[in-house]
């Protein structure tokens, strides 16, 4: 493999996967810590019709219309869930389940129609991701990273994720303390005058944006794994808030790198001439990380709590 080959084929795919996993991995913390993991599931499904409508309106896979469509769909889903919950008098989980599966189904119907009339959008790509299609033709070697002309030809998916990553991490850093208190104790935050509701909706907004920006990398279904697995893994390893955020990002990136390598290169090492799905392997690796932490985690792992009977972990009452 030459530098040129790597920079044209593997670099854009790997960088896209890493950025998607990093953003989703860190944002997923706030779903896991607020005990709203199902929300990630709901959002990533419910944005599908928005993505497709955005595509139909714009006539191409350009970022802004699809982002707009996805955010619109996420808002619609939020309103519908609230309406179903209030007027149907059913529990929130069921309301969420009804709304996001129906919206996803609507998305699938629209998607099949849109795909039939266009070569630019197909169901496989939206549902499972198409990392292999993200190419950087302008690259001629690692030096292209410093070449303005080549950089302007970076794939759209990659630049979208890079911008989203910058904005997301800038905001997470800026509102570090506010996000922490609204996540831990929304009541106290409100009493102190920090608008917990606004932060909640801001979080939902950014999860929607992350889901749409990542869907071309990992697909709209596997993005759930990227939102939940790294944060859940970190939760088994650390009891520190800062470390939790760092580790989940690290596990996300680790899943991306190992998943990509396992999918693209490992079959070749054994003489096979086929490759595995990279987005699929990313999710599998994130699951493997979780499995390892579940068994060997220092405090909450099965070995520590059941086999060695280390310091007992109190599990006090929760809401």
């Amino acid at each position: 493999m030459t530098w040129m080959e790597f920079m044209q084929v593997d670099f854009p795919a790997l960088a896209t996967a890493i950025l998607a996993a990093l953003i989703c991995g860190v944002l997923g913390n706030f779903l896991v810590l607020r005990r709203q993991s199902l929300m990630g599931d709901a959002i990533s499904h419910a944005v599908l019709p928005g993505i497709v409508v955005g595509f139909i309106v714009a006539g191409s896979r350009s970022t802004l219309p699809m982002m707009g469509g996805a955010v619109g769909a996420a808002v619609l889903a939020g309103v519908l869930i609230e309406l179903v919950r209030r007027f149907g008098q059913i529990e929130p989980g069921a309301a969420m389940g009804v709304v996001f599966t129906v919206m996803f189904a609507l998305g699938v119907v629209l998607l099949e129609q849109a795909a039939a009339h266009s070569v630019d959008l197909d169901a496989d790509c939206v549902l499972y991701g198409q990392l292999e299609d993200i190419l950087w033709f302008e690259a001629s070697g690692w030096w292209s990273l410093f070449d303005r002309e080549a950089l302007s030809g970076l794939p759209r998916e990659l630049t979208t994720l890079a911008v989203l990553a910058l904005v997301t991490f800038a905001l997470l850093g800026l509102f570090y303390k506010e996000i922490k208190i609204t996540t831990f104790d929304a009541g106290l935050a409100s009493a102190l005058g920090i608008p917990a509701q606004a932060f909640h909706y801001g979080l939902i907004l950014f999860v929607s944006l992350a889901a749409i920006a990542s869907f071309e990398a990992v697909g709209s279904i596997l993005v759930i794994a990227m939102l939940i697995c790294p944060a859940a893994t970190a939760r088994l390893i650390t009891d520190r808030y800062g470390a939790q955020l760092m580790l989940s990002g690290l596990f996300g990136v680790g899943s991306a790198v190992f998943g990509y390598v396992a999918a693209g290169f490992v079959p070749g090492w054994f003489g096979a001439d086929w490759a595995l799905s990279s987005s699929g392997m990313m999710a599998v690796v994130s699951g493997v990380f979780f499995g390892i932490a579940l068994v060997a985690g220092p405090r909450y792992g099965v070995l520590a709590t059941r086999v060695f009977r280390a310091a007992p972990v109190p599990r006090p009452e929760t809401i």
Partner: peptide, 12 residues
Amino acid sequence: PQRSSVDWQFPV
């Protein structure tokens, strides 16, 4: 607030 109003598993 009441003790049960927060998640005591929270990593802080």
